[in-house]
Design a binder for these strands. Structure first.
Lengths: 341, 341
DNA sequence: GTTCACAATGACAACGTTGTCTCAAATTAC
DNA sequence: GTAATTTGAGACAACGTTGTCATTGTGAAC
């Protein structure tokens, strides 16, 4: 049914090893034979058997490790990775996991052994866990990390970094430009570097504009709707009332919006809200959320292409690359001057 | 590094074939040897090499075909399938595709050939495309379908069906019980059977309650936010104004909510809205959406287990199974009596 | 006590590929 | 014109598994 390398060889009238040489571009085959082989390949629609290759030792699949409740994020990531894998002839093995699990390292190693993947794409927060990284290094596993940071970290391993800090700075600056001074910050999970990075950007913008930081306006928590609701309720019943809230992601922002609504507070007239992520929610909520957009798919694709390069050619000359989220202004923010009270 | 079947054999002091027999539970190995082998397996943490198995002809991976813009749906599905695969020692190959593409059949066949998957999990709308099914049948490929329907279709192929019709009936009945009579229906993509099934349920409930069907209140379109906004605007500016809108999924409902807001219409006081899906949006929107919940993950898991059974033992005694979405009442609906006008 | 059936186990081939080695032909150097 | 070198291509083994067949031992049947 499916053509094998031997079928191709027979049709082309050469030994099957010669076909292998042509397929793998070893370059020691005469032009005429190459043409014959390629013609036969086309005619039979031959595709090398992945299992046989794998069995022989040539890794042809990569693993995607994630722990993230955010479906949009994961799916976008997955599409980007899958696209690049497909283009380069690799298979993808996905592995959702729980970063808080004690056995996460064993899980990952087990998955690598079982599926014989040749490399891993790591996403936050797993990409930011030193234990995991050192375990991978010890086993000489190739990987590429996607992580949050203003600069590439000084480790040798290749990565793709997302400059959340600068984006958060811009968001905060935008709120300040609208006249806001009492700007609250609702953080995300501590395990995620993105949360602290965004907070740094927020603080930097305040400092730059000589606005004194009010610690009561910074509230830590989780990247979740419920956490957003709870913290917003708490904030709005506090002594210092913010005129704007910078939620660390759109899900928290959804919670903020919800809590504000419950209390009859009008958004944005009485309270400006910004999120981070450009999720479908931010586009479908009323009012639309002002937020920051990350080109997740492109990021994932890029990371994958770096990984495959490393798998093929080793870690020499690997260039880490940065991405910069973009501010998307929508309807959940307005100048403080137009506030009703 | 990784233990092979021969390492286990050596440690247990038996031939590697005997180990193979124990691993595959062929049952022709004496108890004492079995114990020895299992002990060695544990000690070496042996895991069979998938590629070798595949190469030998034993299909050990299944493909997941989807074309759905809804990330939550896909991720849930994927988790369910992956969990079952993992439990049964199968690998998962994912394949997003475009159901509208002319080459979809070639794409799927190509993917099957490349990855040597032994079976497919098909989701709507691909699971409802006769062309695709007959192409798969022709190639004798095993598959399980997840689809919308009140009863299993009369084809031989195994499937898991979701009774959207009954769920839609219940939703409509619920609205009628609240006193609504002018209930609009916003359909989804025509290519999805779920859309027509839900419409059937809607119509049946109206008929049962002797409410005349007003065709102006049924508006076809797509499963998207934009389509929901557009059609709601159209409806609300029409001559017959609905007091409730049954949106075919949560995304459409999101659009409906948005459009209502824009026009200053209060939900649910002036307009009740129901969706379908129990998406995160429905839980995070304000007000929370009344909707119907499908146990996607369980459904996916079940479908996968059926598929693996078919792959192992052929299609005898396959029992298709049905699932019934459940009405989730939240805050976007209220009795028509309490309407403000 | 010999034959037979059957159960438990092992030896070996095969799956489709790539790495290594070998060999023949073509080219170069003298 | 002969020896040395390079080049192109094939033969074969190996990867880790499972299917097929052969072999051994054990107890039952005559």
């Amino acid at each position: 049914m499916k053509a094998t390398i031997k079928d191709v060889a027979k049709l082309a009238g050469v030994s099957f090893k010669t076909v292998s040489r042509v397929i793998n571009k070893e370059g020691t085959v005469g032009q005429d034979l190459q043409d014959k082989v390629m013609k036969a390949v086309k005619e039979l629609n031959y595709q090398p058997n992945l299992s046989a290759r794998l069995l022989r030792g040539t890794a042809s699949s990569i693993g995607f490790i994630y722990d993230n409740p955010n479906s949009n994020y994961v799916i976008d990531m997955q599409r980007g990775i899958l696209g690049e894998c497909h283009r380069q002839g690799y298979e993808l093995v996905i592995h959702p996991c729980d970063a808080k699990s004690k056995t996460i390292i064993d899980e990952i190693i087990g998955m690598v052994d079982r599926s014989r993947v040749g490399g891993l794409v790591l996403t936050p927060p797993v990409s930011e866990m030193p234990d995991v990284l050192s375990a991978l290094n010890k086993r000489k596993l190739k990987y590429v990390r996607i992580l949050s940071g203003a600069n590439p970290p000084d480790t040798i391993s290749p990565c793709v970094f997302i400059d959340d800090r600068t984006a958060a700075y811009k968001i905060t600056q935008y709120l300040i430009d609208l006249g806001h001074k009492a700007i609250a910050f609702l953080g995300g999970d501590e395990a995620h570097k993105s949360s602290t990075e965004r907070m740094e950007g927020y603080k930097a913008a305040l400092k730059e504009n000589k606005i004194t930081l009010d610690k009561k306006l910074i509230v830590g928590g989780e990247y979740s709707f419920e956490s957003g609701v709870k913290r917003t309720r708490q904030l709005l019943s506090g002594s210092t009332k913010p005129t704007a809230i910078f939620a660390c992601n759109d899900e928290i922002a959804a919670g903020t919006l919800f809590a504000a609504r419950i209390q009859g507070i009008e958004v944005p007239q009485q309270l400006s809200i910004v999120g981070f992520e450009d999720s479908p929610f931010s586009r479908q909520a009323w009012p639309n959320l002002t937020t920051a957009q990350q080109p997740i798919r492109t990021i994932a694709q890029h990371a994958t292409s770096i990984l495959i390069d490393v798998m093929r050619n080793g870690e020499k000359n690997v260039e880490s690359e940065g991405f910069y989220p973009e501010l998307i202004v929508r309807d959940s923010t307005c100048p403080v001057a137009s506030r009703k009270n």
